[in-house]
Design a protein around this nucleic acid. Structure first.
Length: 423
RNA sequence: GCGGCUAUGGUGUAACGGUUAACACUACAGAUUGUGGUUCUGUCAAUUCGGGUUCGAUUCCCGGUAGCCGCCCCA
């Protein structure tokens, strides 16, 4: 050890390093997400993680901006925030080109987000998130599609309906109920907060707390259940129609949950969250809903929007719990060994031929014995091994070894290519 | 922001307040010369940091730092 303490190898607090294996796994997950979304006509967009701080101050509560963002002043005295979420950037981009974009927009984005907050399970200061939005499509069509997309993404990973639950609720319905009872804005907000905590309280605690909001003997939830108010009933019927459509579509895991309210900020219609049915994984996997008021903040006419998002940490937890992690190999598909150093040239040209067919290849460059080369391939996690030397070049037949199973196949060049392409 | 728990090689663990900090795995080097994961040998490598109590601290106390778990919050 030297006199000076060596530099720490730890990453900055709350962020992660992605070694090739980790990154390959994450990218494999995103590949699945991209494939599903593109099949439905969604287009990928991106923006810088740096945004003007005012972008968030316009929309979000002050506490969140002050306490939970990375905000600093740049050399030009501009206040800059590392994006804590994508939606304001999206709203900004859409508002900027509202005259030329073709609505409805189906857009998604995958990238990192930053939140300066206390870490705990499933929550880090930098995480990756997928945001999916439908812009400019009013009514239940967009709300239904958002839920379906979330569902299809999880299904694409191989999840079954019993692995997760989609909890839906309607902010429009709740709002109708609170205003029917004459609750003022402050009371309504508190009531939603109470609903949000409902699942964390005992039944008695909830009963006691809700009593404060009863008018004429009913609180908003009870008003919804009674079905006596026309405006509330209209929203209830709309939510019920959506749920019927999900059922018709064969989705068996959608439930109405009055405790799903998604914060108190900008949601205006349907809200939904997806939870793992495994109780060990208690955080929401996906969350979203309709937020019609946001894009209008940039001036001009209002544009309706519905969207959802999910983070990499909770998704990976879910996939690991249900043994659904996609297989990912960070390195090459095949290791080409050389019996002697003289064979390296022919091994290289063999490799070039494979690469021309889209196979990823690593060629031995050491003079170590073939046995050690096989060892190296295994350690690198490369699934296939093939030795190329004078013998193979003469016969044009190659012994392709599957390292996991020790099976060997003797194949001509074309056979090697088609074998590796399938893998 | 508040509270609880934890901190030993790269990883996982061990060590009545006592002398050379133990074990396993990994990594690296070698022993089997065109085909590995077996075996064997060797090597590298740790008490989070700063104070205090003590003849003596990995062990006890205080503080910092970091991590884990709750609460708050969750855009």
């Amino acid at each position: 050890m030297s006199d000076k303490a060596p530099l720490s190898t730890d990453p900055y607090k709350g962020v992660r390093d992605f070694y090739p294996e980790d990154w390959a796994r994450l990218q494999a997950c995103f590949d699945i997400v991209r494939k599903v979304l593109r099949e439905y006509g969604y287009e990928e967009y991106n923006a810088s993680p740096l945004e003007r701080a005012e972008l968030y101050e316009a929309k979000t509560s002050e506490e969140i901006v002050n306490d939970q963002t990375y905000t600093f002043t740049d050399r030009g005295d501009r206040r800059v925030t590392l994006r804590p979420e994508m939606t304001p950037s999206l709203a900004r981009m859409v508002a900027a080109k509202r005259r030329e974009l073709v609505f409805p927009l189906r857009w998604f984005s995958i990238g990192n987000r930053f939140r300066y907050e206390r870490m705990q399970k499933g929550r880090l200061r930098e995480f990756y998130q997928v945001d999916v939005d439908i812009i400019g499509l009013p009514g239940p069509a967009a709300e239904g599609e958002a839920v379906v997309m979330a569902y299809e993404i999880l299904r694409a990973f191989g999840a079954q309906d019993e692995d997760f639950t989609i909890r839906v609720n309607s902010r429009a319905m709740l709002n109708a109920a609170t205003s029917a009872l004459g609750l003022d804005e402050e009371e309504s907000k508190k009531y939603l907060g109470l609903l949000d905590r409902k699942n964390k309280m005992s039944a008695e605690e909830f009963e006691t707390a809700r009593a404060d909001y009863r008018k004429d003997g009913v609180d908003p939830l009870e008003l919804i259940e009674k079905g006596t108010d026309e405006a509330v009933q209209a929203e209830y019927a709309s939510l019920q129609n959506l749920m019927d459509a999900f059922a018709t579509r064969g989705m068996t895991n959608v439930v109405f949950d009055p405790a799903t309210v998604r914060g108190f900020l900008y949601y205006t219609g349907l809200v939904f969250e997806i939870f793992d049915t495994n109780p060990d994984n208690s955080r929401a996997l996906f969350g979203g809903g309709r937020y019609d008021g946001l894009i209008g903040l940039f001036g001009g006419e209002q544009i309706t929007a519905t969207g959802f998002a999910f983070g990499d940490v909770t998704l990976l937890d879910f996939l690991a719990t249900h043994n659904l992690l996609p297989k990912a190999t960070p390195g090459a598909q095949v290791f080409v060994g050389t019996p002697t150093e003289d064979d390296i040239a022919s091994a290289q040209s063999f490799a070039e031929e494979l690469r021309a067919s889209g196979v990823t290849v690593l060629v031995n460059v050491s003079d170590k014995p073939l046995g050690d080369q096989v060892k190296e391939a295994v350690k690198r996690g490369i699934p296939y091994f093939v030795a190329v030397g004078a013998e193979e070049m003469k016969s044009t037949c190659f012994r392709l070894k599957t390292l996991a199973s020790s099976e060997e196949e003797t194949l001509p060049m074309a056979g090697v290519v088609s074998r590796l392409r399938r893998s």
